[in-house]
């Protein structure tokens, strides 16, 4: 059995009276891709924001390679091996594509891919000298991915990287993400596209209204009554 990279225990997050996350728990192992699905507003991105230090959880603990993460800052989390991409890409628009990746690479602990290798990996080598703000949305998402990879993360949260891509591009991105699992990295993939997830993940967690309603294989999830109700609604309701 591979080593556990990340474990969440009873994570809850409230915004005033709204419970965005309620006692969410899961773990992900090295070399594993875990899918995180749920309708809009189910708490997927909030969960990433909690794990990646943007929000402090109201309850629960997070463990990275068995070590409990206390209250810490996003840059320390990034350096210690947790990173993410963004649902709405967030490149440093006025910097060049190369500089976007260089910043992160400069803060990496240990070895990893060079900036050139990363840019080639995310198919942005041709645009290295161009301002990141001039890239299209799909390219900006790949740049987010490249920037995260520059820190050689142990666990990477990928937030809707496939949105807006055509089937050929989706297959390419799925293959790209799969190759990231080599070397013991763990992926947590947030996605609405089940076909994309099917090519990529081993199991999924389904969230609804901040609560975990399913945990298991993707095919089983698609047959699960509550998951169907959440995604498709109830006939005659």
């Amino acid at each position: 059995m591979a080593d556990e990279i990340l474990r969440l225990e009873g994570i809850s997050k409230h915004f005033g009276g709204l419970s965005a996350l309620q006692e969410v728990s899961f773990s992900v192992e090295g070399g594993e891709a875990l899918g995180l699905v749920g309708p809009n507003g189910s708490g997927k991105t909030t969960l990433i924001n909690v794990v990646c230090g943007l929000y402090t959880p109201n309850a629960g603990n997070i463990y990275l390679e068995g070590a409990k993460l206390g209250k810490t800052t996003p840059h320390k989390l990034a350096k210690s091996g947790i990173n993410r991409t963004f649902q709405v890409p967030q490149p440093f628009a006025s910097l060049t594509v190369r500089e976007n990746v260089e910043i992160a690479a400069a803060h990496r602990r240990g070895d990893g891919m060079s900036v050139v290798e990363i840019l080639d990996f995310v198919n942005l080598g041709k645009w290295a000298g161009q301002e990141a703000g001039s890239l299209n949305a799909a390219q900006q998402k790949r740049l987010d991915l490249g920037r995260a990879l520059a820190l050689n993360p142990k666990v990477l949260f990928v937030d809707e990287l496939g949105a807006g891509l055509n089937p050929a591009e989706l297959a390419e991105v799925a293959a790209m993400l799969r190759s990231l699992l080599n070397g013991g990295r763990a992926l947590v993939v947030v996605e609405h596209l089940m076909g994309f997830l099917d090519k990529l993940v081993d199991r999924v967690i389904v969230l609804n209204a901040g609560r975990e309603i399913f945990h298991g294989g993707l095919r089983s999830a698609l047959d699960d009554g509550e998951v169907k109700r959440v995604f498709l609604g109830t006939v005659g309701a």
């Binding site: 996003p74 840059h75 967030q90 440093f92 006025s94 260089e102 910043i103 803060h107």
Partner: peptide, 25 residues
């Protein structure tokens, strides 16, 4: 310098800069 590059990243987005490993504070 790398310092200046990091400052420009902070200007664009503090949180994204932090996720790139920049000690924003």
């Amino acid at each position: 310098s790398r310092f200046g590059l990091s400052l420009r990243a902070i200007k664009e987005s503090e949180y994204s800069a932090a996720m790139a490993g920049v000690n924003v504070v």
